[in-house]
Design a protein around this nucleic acid. Structure first.
Lengths: 333, 333
DNA sequence: AATAGCAGCGACAATCTGTGTCGTATAGGA
DNA sequence: TCCTATACGACACAGATTGTCGCTGCTATT
């Protein structure tokens, strides 16, 4: 039994989803590799058996030369996993995906749909008898003001594949003519995905937004090797405003109000954050923390409006002052 | 074969992870429900067989009265799923989880670890032969300045369970004495999880941060029913600053610079956003869009600093002006 | 156009594995 | 101490699994 059941399991794992297919002979070879030396006939029989219990489909003999029948999981058949999700995991998955819905393009997220289905099924099963389901109990606060850029699902899939397999691809960018592109890295900022790549034989690395690609076609050519390229080094040069040109640890000192102080007590700026009373009458407090200066920090400081006042370092205070001054002048008119 | 292999699969799905156990007799009953009428002996034999191929562990007979042997998946044994992840899905899962790492408390995320492992394994398998793995190719920009609040993993798990099963629980809040709590809803804002609940017999709904709970203990008592409670209604009253007290659609009009204009072209404020040139010389543009006013929008406007100027509606412009004025006064000293 | 080669599929027999039943040992509770 | 419940070993039989072989239909090559 051990042999046959385990073999079936391994086969199920090896069968991909619909756009891809696997032939009975490929499976036979893989099983042989894994130590299951069975005859090809058995594999064929197993596939037929499995297909009566799982949503397997077999490809039409539309291939070129390859007359072998190929198999795949039906596109939207639910997936199975074990150990099954427990209630807590299901809730976590469900919340996480709700979160991601506002963070990643839906065309990317569709790949996670099976898990969402599994989680929701599990939650429904748990709560079907209860009068109130989890959907009426859980909410995730939206984090973003802007709409997500529209991405072409197929394009994203192909570009991911090119990146993973170190292959060139061919696409139009911003609706312009076709280009040959060598992908080197992928960076996600907010809801936007950026591809770091080179065009044709050019030497310079370009930052391209994934949603601007269209008509992507994978090429069989491998990318030009680029051993000097290191994504961290590249980002740290200040490209993409990833960090300030000179990212440095600063000793931040802020004056904050009561509300922000409470907030910081629970979500500190750093592990060694210091919080002291500044002026009890006015309910103002001082916060000190060592942290990395950067774009994120500055946006955060700005977003707090008058809840916060930067005291040190001087450079940051001056920067805040200049921004605020410019704004004030504008709104005075 | 069909019978036995499918039965084994169903068994694997029914076996939970380590903190929970299932006895051979429970399994026997569940299988009988599912239409597999086999003897208990067979179930026991199957479990032994499975345990030689999967990381199953059996509980010590430490239970009370229940001498039956119970089984569970070992805590950190990888999980299996089929159809297996394809490359694109694996990359998506991996990026999504990296994202979530900065969004959800690690203690909550640990439930998703199996998927992360599966995805990374898959990616490694794909790229082991290549000179550069995906880890060196993909980066996710951090979104948060603050550290996540520290959450007790066990507490979160138990509270989730209580919420899902409509049960009371008992816990200390903010280190104070023990309370009996009736959970009604869960809200996630940023990286903080809030529980909407009532204490003891009190009638008022309280907003409690999950990370402030300690020593949680599930009770068998069901929560007091609360048919009048509706999470959306509650949030829309303005509680938790979820929305402004009077959330209304406004006709937003902004003056933006070149950089922000480019950004908005790709990530618009709304579907029907209007973008026109304001002053070609100074590279300033006007944006108009109908959208919901709220906390998110205002924080976003503030975070942009002098890249943006609010023109309409008047109320919002005045609000911006007052904040900016207050800040400017402060920094003048 | 004909044929060689390949892949799939049906049939069959030998084997072996899965399953129910029964009996015994062990542990905990009354 | 006895009793009940559970686990577990043994055994026999039915049924499933698997390799082999041969036939059929298709493709590609000569």
């Amino acid at each position: 039994m051990a042999d046959s059941s385990l073999r079936l399991l391994l086969m199920l794992q090896q069968i991909p989803r619909e756009p891809r297919y696997v032939s009975s002979q490929q499976l036979h070879a893989r099983l042989a590799d894994a130590g299951y030396s069975v005859s090809l006939r058995t594999v064929q029989r197993d596939l037929v058996k499995l297909s009566s219990h799982f949503p397997l489909i077999q490809s039409e003999p539309s291939g070129q030369g390859n007359t072998g029948v190929s198999w795949a999981f039906s596109q939207h058949g639910q997936h199975m996993a074990f150990p099954g999700m427990d209630a807590v995991t299901a809730l976590t998955v469900s919340m996480a995906l709700e979160h991601l819905q506002s963070l990643l393009p839906p065309q990317v997220l569709q790949h996670l749909e099976p898990w969402q289905l599994e989680a929701e099924e599990r939650l429904q099963k748990l709560n079907s008898s209860k009068y109130q389901s989890w959907m009426d109990k859980v909410r995730v606060s939206p984090q973003h003001v802007l709409q997500a850029p529209q991405v072409d699902a197929e394009a994203v899939g192909l570009i991911y594949e090119a990146l993973l397999e170190n292959r060139q691809f061919c696409a139009t960018y911003k609706g312009k003519s076709e280009r040959v592109i060598h992908p080197y890295g992928l960076v996600q900022q907010g809801r936007t995905l950026y591809l770091l790549c080179r065009f044709y034989d050019f030497e310079d690395v370009r930052i391209t937004a994934l949603h601007r690609f269209e008509k992507v076609e994978l090429l069989d050519e491998p990318i030009r090797p680029f051993p000097a390229f290191n994504i961290d080094d590249y980002l740290n040069t200040g490209a993409m405003q990833w960090a300030l040109p000179d990212p440095k640890l600063i000793s931040l000192e802020l004056r904050v109000n009561q509300w922000l102080k409470n907030h910081l007590e629970e979500s500190p700026l750093s592990e060694q954050q210091l919080l002291v009373i500044d002026d009890e009458q006015q309910e103002s407090y001082l916060v000190k923390a060592e942290m990395l200066d950067g774009r994120q920090l500055r946006r955060w400081l700005l977003s707090l409006g008058s809840d916060v006042e930067v005291i040190a370092p001087k450079g940051l205070r001056d920067w805040m002052a200049s921004i605020v001054k410019a704004q004030a002048d504008r709104y005075l008119e």
